[in-house]
Amino acid sequence: MTNSDLDDLFAAVRQQPVAVSDDLMARVLQDAQAEQPVAVGLARPKRRQGFWTGLFAALGGAGGLAGLSTAAIAGVWFGFAQPTALTTVTDSIWQTEVAVETVDILPGFDDYLSEG
């Protein structure tokens, strides 16, 4: 056995590739299919914005909606509770005991309107 014999033997092995079974090829291609990234296609069309989504955004999102709700609830509470302090203020402005029968809009013109 010489180096040359060994080289010939290596060459013989090189020329005889190991056979790949159909089963192995099928398994490898199955793996390839399973691992293949999904093709990057057209971007998904943007969904049309609905009315409520638009309104929600217009009110300033969650923060804006929370503020608005708080203000609305406070208003309703004021309406029902009628705090004493507020009654005092409204009574002084709007005295229900005073009956206004006539309102003289232009009292200075009476002299001109009298006959004679």
Binding site: L24, V28, L29, A32, Q36, V38
Partner: peptide, 25 residues
């Protein structure tokens, strides 16, 4: 292959699998 071409996987497998198999064996 990474862009979704399955024929590319077949070509790569037919090119390299015999060599890989032989070396492993």
């Amino acid at each position: 292959y990474a862009n979704g071409d399955s024929a590319a996987a077949r070509e790569l497998a037919s090119r390299h699998l015999p060599r890989v198999m032989g070396f492993a064996a």
